[in-house]
Every structure is written in structure tokens, then in C-alpha cells.
Amino acid sequence: MTLTLTVPPGAKVRVRITNENGETTEIEVEPGETVTITLPAGSTVRVEVEVVDPDGRKRTETFTLKP
């Protein structure tokens, strides 16, 4: 399973991925970048995406991906 994120110009994104064992991976994606994350097959993962807009506003979306 893959997750692809494209960050709009001016925004910053931090992604936290937590697996079933509670292990967390965190990455930051710079403005204008596209990143593809390969998620472990057969695992349920929690993905938290934090977006910081150019004006400093933050918003966070959290979702769970199941196999």
C-alpha cells in the first residue's frame, strides 16, 4: 500500500506514521515536494498529517489505514 502526498507551495507538512507495535516514523515534506510512502503490507497504520500554511495556521488530519 502506498500513500502519496503533494505539498502545495508555501505549506509545510509533517507526517507521523504509527504501526500496530506503536513504532512511529516521522517525516517532514518541504513546500512543492511530492513524496510517496510505502506502508507495510497487511498492517494497520495510523497516519497523522500536520499542515502549516504560509500564514502560520496549523491543521491536523488523522486517519487509519487497514489492509
Rank of each mutant, 00 (worst) to 15 (best):
S43Y: 07
L39G: 14
I17E: 12
P9N: 09
V45P: 02
E50L: 01
V15P: 01
R46W: 09
T36V: 12
T4S: 05
E28G: 10
F63W: 05
L3P: 11
T60K: 03
S43T: 12
P8R: 10
K58N: 01
A41R: 10
T44M: 08
T2A: 08
T38F: 12
T60F: 05
R59K: 03
M1H: 09
T36W: 12
T62W: 10
E23C: 12
P8H: 13
P31L: 15
E48S: 03
P9D: 08
A11E: 02
G56H: 00
V35M: 08
R46M: 12
N21I: 12
V52Y: 04
V47F: 01
R46P: 01
V35R: 03
P67W: 15
V45F: 11
L5D: 02
T64S: 02
E48V: 05
P40S: 10
T25Y: 09
F63I: 14
V13H: 00
D53Y: 15
T38P: 08
G56T: 00
R46L: 11
K12A: 13
T2I: 13
I17Q: 08
K66D: 14
T36N: 10
R14A: 13
E30A: 06
T38E: 06
A11F: 02
E26A: 06
E20Y: 08
E33C: 14
E61L: 15
V29T: 12
P40G: 06
K12I: 08
L65C: 15
T60R: 02
G32M: 13
E33L: 09
N21E: 07
A41C: 13
R57T: 14
K58Y: 02
G10H: 04
K66Q: 14
P8W: 14
T64C: 15
E23A: 08
A11M: 01
E30Y: 04
R59D: 01
K66M: 14
I17S: 11
I17N: 09
A11S: 10
E23M: 07
R57Q: 09
F63L: 11
I17L: 10
E20M: 04
R46D: 04
V51R: 01
L65K: 00
V7E: 13
D53E: 04
T6H: 11
V47S: 00
G56P: 00
N19D: 07
I37L: 07
V29I: 04
L39Y: 07
G32F: 12
L39Q: 05
G56M: 00
V51C: 05
T64Y: 15
E61K: 03
P31H: 06
R59I: 09
P31C: 15
L65Y: 14
T4F: 10
A41M: 09
R16K: 05
G42V: 14
G56N: 00
V45W: 13
G32V: 15
R59P: 00
E26V: 04
E26M: 04
V15N: 00
E48G: 01
R59A: 01
V49D: 00
I27Y: 13
I27R: 11
G42I: 13
I17D: 03
V29P: 13
E23F: 07
K58T: 10
P31D: 12
V45Q: 07
A11Q: 01
K12S: 14
T25G: 07
T6R: 06
P40L: 14
M1C: 15
P67F: 15
E26C: 04
V51N: 01
G32L: 08
V29K: 10
T2Q: 05
R14D: 13
T62S: 06
I37P: 02
T36C: 15
P9E: 10
E50N: 02
P54G: 03
E30I: 14
P40T: 14
R59G: 00
V52S: 03
L39I: 05
R59H: 11
T34Q: 10
F63H: 03
G56L: 00
G22V: 07
T24F: 07
P54I: 07
A11N: 03
P67C: 15
T6N: 12
F63C: 15
R46N: 04
T64D: 12
P9Q: 07
G42Y: 10
V15K: 01
K58M: 04
V45A: 05
R57G: 03
A11K: 01
V47N: 00
G22A: 07
T18N: 09
N21K: 04
T24M: 07
K66P: 15
G22Y: 08
T18P: 09
V29G: 06
E48L: 02
M1I: 10
T60G: 00
G42A: 13
R46Y: 13
N19A: 10
V51Q: 02
E33R: 07
T6L: 14
L5G: 07
E26N: 06
E23H: 06
E26S: 05
R14M: 13
V15Y: 06
N19Y: 12
T6A: 09
G42K: 07
V52K: 02
R14T: 14
E48T: 08
L65V: 13
N19S: 09
R14Q: 12
M1V: 07
E28C: 06
E30R: 09
F63K: 00
E23Y: 10
L5Q: 03
F63N: 01
T2D: 03
G56W: 00
T4H: 13
E61D: 02
E20W: 07
T38D: 07
G22C: 15
E28F: 03
P54M: 05
A11D: 07
M1F: 13
I27G: 11
N19H: 06
E28H: 07
A11P: 02
T4M: 07
T34G: 11
P8D: 14
V49Q: 00
A11T: 03
K12L: 06
G42H: 12
T18K: 03
G22W: 11
N21P: 12
L65H: 01
T62H: 05
E20I: 05
T2S: 06
D55M: 01
D53F: 15
A41V: 05
M1Q: 03
E30M: 05
G42S: 14
T24C: 12
T60W: 11
I27H: 11
R46K: 06
I37K: 10
E33F: 13
T62V: 14
P54A: 12
T2V: 06
T34A: 11
I17M: 11
P9T: 10
E26D: 04
V51G: 00
I37E: 10
P9G: 07
R14N: 11
V47A: 02
R46G: 02
P9R: 08
L3N: 04
T64M: 07
T18R: 05
E33N: 05
G10P: 09
E50C: 04
T18A: 04
E48Q: 05
T64R: 00
I17A: 15
K12M: 09
V51S: 04
L65M: 13
G56S: 00
T24A: 12
K66L: 14
T6K: 06
T25N: 05
S43Q: 15
E23Q: 06
L5F: 10
D53M: 14
R57W: 02
T6F: 13
I17P: 02
V45I: 08
T34V: 14
T4A: 07
E23I: 08
T18G: 10
P9I: 08
T64F: 15
V52R: 03
V45D: 03
T6G: 14
K58D: 00
E33W: 08
V15E: 00
E26P: 14
T60C: 13
T62I: 13
E28V: 02
V45T: 07
T36A: 09
E23D: 10
I27M: 10
N19Q: 09
T36E: 13
N21V: 08
P40N: 11
D55P: 00
V45H: 07
L39A: 14
M1N: 04
V13P: 10
T18I: 14
P54W: 06
N21C: 13
P8S: 12
G22F: 08
E61Q: 06
P31G: 09
T62K: 02
V35Q: 04
L3D: 01
I37T: 12
V29C: 11
G56E: 00
T2G: 09
T4E: 05
L3F: 06
E48A: 03
V52H: 02
K12D: 14
V13C: 11
L3M: 04
V35D: 04
L39R: 07
I27S: 10
E48C: 04
P8G: 14
D53P: 00
E20L: 07
L5P: 03
E30N: 04
E26I: 03
A41F: 13
T4C: 15
L39H: 04
E26L: 04
V15T: 10
D53N: 02
E28K: 07
P67Y: 15
V29H: 09
S43A: 13
P9S: 06
T6D: 15
T60Y: 07
E48F: 02
E50W: 02
K12N: 12
E20Q: 05
T44L: 09
T44C: 14
T18V: 11
T24P: 08
T38M: 07
K66Y: 15
E48R: 02
V35E: 02
T4N: 06
P8V: 15
V13S: 05
I37A: 12
P40R: 12
V47Q: 00
L39M: 11
K58P: 01
V35F: 09
G32K: 14
V7N: 02
N21W: 07
I17F: 13
E61I: 15
D53Q: 03
T36H: 08
E23T: 08
V7H: 11
E30K: 09
V47R: 01
I37M: 08
P54S: 09
R59S: 04
T60I: 13
E26G: 07
V7D: 02
T62F: 07
P40E: 12
R46E: 06
E23L: 06
L5S: 03
G32T: 13
E20R: 05
L65T: 01
